[in-house]
Design a protein around this nucleic acid. Structure first.
Lengths: 159, 159
DNA sequence: CACGTTAGTGAGAATGAGTCTCATTCACAC
DNA sequence: GTGTGAATGAGACTCATTCTCACTAACGTG
């Protein structure tokens, strides 16, 4: 459903993305303003979960309160996903209907996140098993998350 | 390796647990004091991830600074695990060598967590697939986490 | 085009989970 | 018992995130 690569999108893909985001905001009676466009564009370009300071590094000026408020709006409209980990700052990325289903490598050293895509068959089995477990716990599932924790190449495990 | 149920442990199991925790603390040159005992005992009894305020509800008095400090020490010694989610407070639970490997049902309504155990075969397949993905990303894995997000029985999804 | 209405903006204040400081107390070794 | 370093707890503090509020931008209507 989304673009099939985790590289930065080209211009045409970016136009499609903006159109899709615009539709989602409209559906929630929100406007697709310049600040929001900028956030979406940055998230699309970095193509991995990033913190607010990391987003700010890609902008000349990014008023903090507006940025957080817009991230919240975008999250409520299903445009982005907030990932709260152990790191000081929360990470943000484009939400799944806009990009392929994927999971994360979570570095215990620097707190950075990276995307991974798993085999679809395995995903199906996981979902089936989880659905069963959920049913017996009277739990109504919406989605799963599957993260691999460890150390990225720059943070070799401490001896 | 751990007890095979997610019910509160009986007295004998609790003794074993304290002994195991004591050994771990000793290995790190830390003492197994009354406050730490109390934290471990509470976590063992509730048998699900809880926040500090929830732990405090099981104690007459729980000095905040000591509690957080001890949770940190216990985490560093591999006795407990900290789970940082979207909820205001972090959740804490006994670490995996002390209890069976399991995952969580994460309620988007009230933020509560509940344990689920999955089929071991599936776990193996997931680990294998993740190991492969990690290798090609030059990532050194330590463990995985697999959560199911949704709504618990008390928080039926909002229409 | 002017007007009214509603959403968005941004600077600064406020919130609050979690951490730090430091003087006091405890636990263990001898 | 006594000494030594770890543990304790009250309160100050940090800092990511949220809230407030006066102001501006966008959009629909007559």
């Amino acid at each position: 459903m989304g673009p099939s690569s985790d590289q930065s999108p080209d211009e045409a893909q970016m136009d499609d993305l903006h159109a899709a985001v615009g539709r989602r905001l409209e559906r929630h009676d929100h406007r697709y303003t310049r600040g929001r466009r900028h956030l979406v564009e940055t998230l699309a370009r970095v193509a991995r979960p990033v913190t607010l300071p990391q987003i700010a590094a890609h902008a000349d000026e990014l008023p903090q309160s507006s940025a957080y408020r817009n991230l919240e709006v975008l999250e409520r409209c299903g445009v982005i996903t907030r990932i709260a980990g152990t790191a000081d700052h929360a990470h943000f990325e484009l939400a799944e209907p806009l990009v392929d289903h994927h999971h994360h490598l979570v570095c215990l050293g620097c707190g950075s996140l990276e995307d991974v895509h798993l085999d679809q068959e395995l995903e199906k089995m996981v979902d089936a098993e989880l659905a069963q477990a959920a049913a017996s716990a009277r739990f109504t599932p919406t989605h799963h998350s599957l993260d691999l924790h460890g150390y990225c190449h720059d943070c070799e495990p401490q001896a």
